[in-house]
Write a protein that binds this DNA or RNA. Structure first.
Length: 416
RNA sequence: GUGGCCAUAGUUCAGUUGGUUAGAACGCCAGGUUGUGGCCCUGGAGGCCGUGGGUUCAAGUCCCACUGGCCACCCCA
């Protein structure tokens, strides 16, 4: 084969694009109902934006970014996630000056150079939302409720919501020290991966998939027991809201997010139907990010969800939306002269807003009927010399098989 | 980045201990119906057997490398 798509990238082809249209329309509709407005940022940014927001030491920045130098010798990176760009746009365009709470959402591709596997691609798609400007736990609750609502409206039932608080600049460093001290005591018994993580990211040791590690760390302290008064109050309030929203959740003090910028609330939605990469969506609060990126100190909360993973679950359920593009009418023609008429009429009707298809292969009537069937056309109009002469033709309802002779100039009326 | 499995028509797959013209189903095209879809019947087109090298009289089949896919680790959406 001459050219192939880049490893870890995929073509999304017609029957499947209908599913994407459906999912995107549901997602947009829910966002709009929650009064979030769409923001579209460039898919590439200065490398430093991601390095500073996501964190130099994270895997994403350390080894997964698509980074290159452009012809002006600037370091450019394809966005690995959405929040950094949104906050950059928020600061750059002074969005906070027009209103105190800015609520935006995005849908689009993200890029990470990882080894592809089930539910993991190098170009993948996310939808997500950010609420920038409020410290209130009500906003955290709204974001979570909105996330859940989207999955509900897609008739997805089998997921689990895990929530936690990762603390703030006051309580997290404290806890990190306590945990590291505990972990160092048993370091020798831990897996090599976990030993490395003790210094790099101790919270992740608690999340290890290694059975032995899990046993050894079962009684280790968790952050949710070591929050400062303010973080604890915030977390309690969030839990109350979720309960009042009738949203079931489990508190998982070991929940870790892959990005450094999170403070207080962290949450994750997982699906048991996904295999190893089971996170459907994740998010949390990032009260320090805006000032870290050079803006006025402004709190924020957000989430992001993987569209391909959502598709995997929908496919597993056998979900198949009705074809979103199908002609209202197919004009079948019996000969060259009527074909000319049918093409001209097709263009006319289309300009009037009617979805029409005709024969463009000069095929037999039978083949045209087959084509109309394949396209799931609602009606077929059969025209030939006779019809052009008499001004009346047969209109066939493809679902019922019913045929009626109608005057050609009444075709618009018949279709409406 | 590491590991395991895999790579044959458009698609999903068969292909005996290496042995003549590589098969099926579905899909596609045409005919059965000289102006009518779906079901049925008949016929047809369509394969450098992932790429490169090696072993052999002989390779889709065995060996090696590469590329790609799948799955897992890592990490995450």
């Amino acid at each position: 084969m001459a050219f192939k798509s880049i490893r870890g990238t995929k073509d999304i082809l017609p029957p499947e694009t209908a599913r994407w249209h459906y999912v995107e329309s549901v997602v947009r509709e829910v966002f709009h109902r929650f009064n979030y407005k769409e923001i579209r940022t460039p898919i590439f940014e200065q490398t430093a934006l991601f390095a500073r927001s996501i964190g130099e030491l994270t895997d994403i920045v350390g080894k997964e970014m698509y980074t290159f130098t452009d012809r002006s010798d600037d370091s450019i990176t394809l966005r690995p996630e959405g929040t950094a760009s949104v906050i950059r746009a928020y600061i750059q365009n002074n969005l906070g000056e027009a209103q105190p709470l800015v609520k935006v959402y995005y849908i689009g591709p993200m890029f990470r150079q990882e080894r592809p596997q089930a539910g993991r691609l190098r170009q993948f798609h996310q939808f997500g939302a950010e609420a920038i400007g409020s410290l209130q736990p009500e906003v955290d609750a709204e974001i979570i409720a909105m996330t859940i609502q989207i999955y509900k409206e897609l008739s997805l039932a089998k997921y689990a919501l895990k929530i936690s608080s990762v603390g703030c600049e006051k309580c997290r460093p404290h806890f990190k020290e306590i945990l590291q001290n505990e972990l160092r005591k048993i370091a020798a018994k831990l897996s090599p991966d976990s030993q490395r993580r003790i210094e790099e990211n101790p919270m992740r040791v608690l999340d290890s998939k290694d059975e032995n590690d899990a046993t050894l760390t079962a009684k280790m302290p968790v952050i949710t027991d070591h929050l400062c008064a303010e973080c604890a109050r915030h977390f309690e309030s969030l839990k109350k809201y979720l309960t009042s929203f009738h949203i079931p959740y489990t508190v998982d003090g070991r929940l870790v997010r892959g990005l450094d910028y999170y403070t207080k609330t962290a949450f994750e939605l997982t699906s048991a139907e996904l295999g190893s990469q089971d996170a459907l969506a994740g998010g949390g609060r990032y009260d320090l990010l805006t000032q870290e990126l050079g803006g006025k100190a402004t709190p924020g909360v957000g989430f992001a969800a993987g569209i391909e993973r959502l598709m995997m679950v929908l496919e597993k359920k056998g979900f198949e939306p009705a074809a979103d593009i199908r002609p209202a009418l197919f004009i079948a023609s019996a000969d060259a002269e009527s074909r000319a008429w049918s093409v001209a009429t097709t263009i006319d009707l289309r300009s009037e807003g009617i979805a029409v298809e005709a024969d463009f292969l000069a095929r037999s009537l039978k083949a045209q009927m087959r084509e109309a069937d394949r396209q799931q056309a609602k009606f077929v109009l059969v025209v030939g010399q006779r019809e052009l002469g008499s001004g009346r033709a047969i209109l066939k309802n493809m679902k019922t098989g019913e045929q009626n002779e109608i005057p050609l100039d009444e075709i618009r009326k018949q279709l409406s």
